[in-house]
Every structure is written in C-alpha cells, then in structure tokens.
Design a binder for these strands. Structure first.
Ligand SMILES: [Mn+2]
Ligand SMILES: [Mn+2]
Ligand SMILES: [Mn+2]
Ligand SMILES: [Mn+2]
Lengths: 227, 227
DNA sequence: ATAATAATTTAGGCTTGTCTAAAAATTTTT
DNA sequence: AAAAATTTTTAGACAAGCCTAAATTATTAT
C-alpha cells in the first residue's frame, strides 16, 4: 500500500481558482472594476463571503483591491485565471470530441476537471486533442503561457439583411439554450443568410446552409456569435 | 455568463471517499477489523482525526463501528469504495494508454480524478478505452455494479525453480519501485523463468523473455505478482 | 447639502476536517 | 491479577469558507 491520499498542499484552493476565473469573466464583460455584488451573484454566495475572499486574494497579491472600490486582477491573478480557463476548455474539447458528450453537457463536468492540478496532464491532453484552438462553444483556448487569443465576432442580431455569415460561437452557455440550438439546427459552423429583420420584435428570418428557412428570436440572435 | 460554480452538494466528500477506499484496502490486506491507527498512518493524519471521521461514517451507515473495536465497511460503504477504486483505475488506464504517461506517473493524478462525480463520465470513458479489465499496474477494475473481480496470482518470491511465469501485476505502487522495474526490464506481461533461488537472501535468478538473465532481490520478488 | 437608498464591510457563528493534549479503554507484561 | 504499555477516544482549538445581522461607506434623490 502506498501514499494513498498524501497530496502536497496545493498553492490555491478550488474556491480561490473559481473566484479568479469569475473575476476574469466579469472584467471581460464590462470596463472598470468588478463589484462585490456581481461576484456574489456569479458565485452563488453572499456579498459578505465575497468580501472575506477578496481580502484573502488581495493578501496573496492576486487582485488589486481597495475597500468599497471594486476589484481587478493582478498580472499573476490573470495568469492563474487563464490557466484555469485553459484547463476548462481543453477538458470540454476532450469530453465532446473523444467521449461524445453534447455541447450542452460538457460545462458541468469541466467545472470539476478544471481544478485537477497537473501541468503535464493538461499539456499531454492538449497534444492528444491536436492542440485545439476553440472549445465546443466556440470560445478560444488560452495559450499555455497564459494569453487569451483575441476573437472578433459579431452577434447575429447585428448582421444586416442579405449578408451570409457562419455561426462561430455562443454567448449563452446554458444547456437549455444549447439544446434549443440543436433542435433548430443552428450548430457551430453552419452558414446563415439573413433574409429579413422584423422591425417590431427584432427577430430575424434566416436561411440555413442554403436549405431550410428559420425564424430566430432576438433573444437567440443576441446570443449567437457569427463570423 | 451562466452558473459558474453552482455545484449541487455532493452526497459524499472527497475525504469520506478517501477514508472508505482506505478502509477497503486495509480490509483486503488482512482479516478482521481495520484499526484506527492503521487508518491514521495510511491517510497521513492523526488517530484523533480518524476517530472523528469514523463516528461520522458510522452515522451515515457506511461502516460498522463499535468504539475501540475497529471498523468494517457496510455493504453500502463497500459499494461506494469500489466505485471510487473503479474510477481511479479507469483514469489510470486513460492516462497510460491514451496520454502516454508511465505507470509510475498515473497514480498521483488518478488520486484527484477519482473524485470527479459523474456516472456518465466514467461510463463513457470506460467505453472509450474499450472496457479494460486491468489497470496499468495489473489491478482488476471493479464492475460498474460494484463487484471486484477475483484474481489469483502468486508472488514471484514463491515460484519454484524451473517454473516459467508471466508478470501480471505489482503489489508495491511507488514510482521508485516501478521505475526500478522499468530499468531492469521487468514489465507487465513479460515471461520470467526462475533459474535459481539463493537460500541465504532469497534473491532469485531469472531469465526474462528467454533472453537476458537477471538477479532479483527478494524485496522485489515479493512485490511482483505472476500468473 | 442633506436625506434616503444601495452597496460593501465587519462582527459573530456554523460546519468540515484537521491538530495537540488529556482521559479512557484495551492489551501486554510481570 | 495487577501494573505497565499501547491504542483509542474525547476535549478544546484552529483554518477555510460560508452564513445572517449590524455597521459603515458610497451613491442617488430631494
Ligand atoms: Mn464551460
Ligand atoms: Mn465552453
Ligand atoms: Mn493507483
Ligand atoms: Mn493502479
């Protein structure tokens, strides 16, 4: 019998990694500092708990934090956040490409797998998958060095009549939304010709892959990224 | 942004799973109840901490426990322990077969991966690997229903002169031991003809794959399982 | 410029899993 | 069968991460 659960204490806890990742996402969503309340909402905790954690992350120099002034990742904090996001997205590719899970199923499992701490594991997995550039939702995979590739997509809701575009990603990642896309045939990579835009509800009428015509609500169109 | 770390609270913690697994292994190692001290040693904690956990596991009906009398898994506890061991060994096969890790490297990562909680994940992974029967160390993989296949191997130290056997597994799993086997060419599956046994130190002289001759210490021979 | 409202932090507690030191039970030795 | 030694449990603490309630600071409205 040998060293069953002797694990060297990791540098950062799951919880810390999740906070960093969440701060990264909220920072990307809008300019300026991230607020305590928005973090509480995203992490499904209370503002008081977030305050505690922010103090701790600031002590560890992972965030810039002045009381009541919101929060911003330090370089080190961003490096760590991108590492977690890289692991998450690589695992999503594995689950989707190799194990045959649907794009609506992979996120939940990746939320756990992203915390497995082995540089070599994610490196070998990356190679095994052929160094994918994007995850199953079209999101770019950060480089091993911790750089997030820039992507410039528009929302389908912003495309003008007559243009033909390709579905490149989604903004909304809920299983419900993704299953709805599956049902209507709006998969990643499919070509979409915008035929008409309804001026009242801003729904769009589109032709998919030069075949069937479809009505897409603005709610859906706003969450579809196209080339 | 969507449900980042909203995880449904799992039935059993990592820690509980590790205790159950450890109790299983210690039970297999010798007859009778498992002692508090042996658990403390295996889990690299103190006896006091083990006592606390045993009380909790007993409350959850996962172990039979009478104070000062040692401990034994209930049916439910054994079912859970075997589930964890199954996940551990399937992940080890993945790491070894698909990602190319050595058998001396896989255990540590599997210690983390074994706690990923998704029935469907391990089921799909099992299928992806072609339903392996044994892990990279020759240990049998428990069935999905929670049954540990019986295997009947001898130790190389017990083989009589003139017999030819095949290496089927290892009892010791430390990277040091496994690397030593790699170095001497004693891989899983290789054929071993016992040519001589030294009566003093019980080391054995063996011929490997009908080729080179090798001296194997009793320490090593005791930890090699052969057909 | 206050007053009211909203956001954030602090205070004090709880749970899990760990620890050390002390008490209690069991086992071994004499 | 006692005494000594060992094993196990209990008592009391602590860190991480969470909570509610109260206090504080910032923002918005009057
Ligand atoms: Mn995801
Ligand atoms: Mn994704
Ligand atoms: Mn192992
Ligand atoms: Mn193994």
């Amino acid at each position: 019998m040998d060293r069953l659960q002797i694990r060297p204490k990791p540098m950062h806890s799951f919880t810390e990694e999740n906070y960093l990742k969440t701060i990264y996402y909220l920072s990307a969503r809008q300019e300026g500092e991230v607020t305590t309340n928005s973090l509480a909402e995203m992490t499904a905790t209370k503002a008081a708990s977030v305050s505690d954690m922010l103090r701790k992350l600031a002590e560890k120099q992972l965030i810039h934090y002045k009381k009541y002034q919101g929060v911003r990742l330090t370089e080190e904090g961003e490096r760590l956040a991108l590492k977690v996001i890289r692991r998450h997205r690589i695992w999503e590719v594995f689950l989707s490409e190799k194990l045959g899970f649907g794009w609506d199923e992979v996120h939940e499992m990746a939320e756990e797998l992203e915390h497995i701490r082995s540089e070599e594991l994610v490196q070998k997995l990356d190679a095994f998958l052929g160094y994918p550039q994007f995850d199953p939702h079209g999101d770019p995979i950060p480089s091993p060095a911790g750089h997030m590739p820039a992507v410039e997509y528009s929302k389908l809701s912003e495309v003008t009549i007559g243009e033909e575009v390709q579905v490149m990603g989604v903004l909304e990642h809920s299983p419900e939304f993704l299953q709805h896309l599956d049902k209507t045939g709006l998969n990643l990579g499919c070509r979409v010709l915008v035929q008409d835009v309804n001026v009242f509800d801003k729904s769009v009428s589109v032709q998919i892959n030069h075949e069937k015509t479809l009505f897409v609500s603005n709610e859906v169109a706003r969450n579809l990224l196209v080339n």
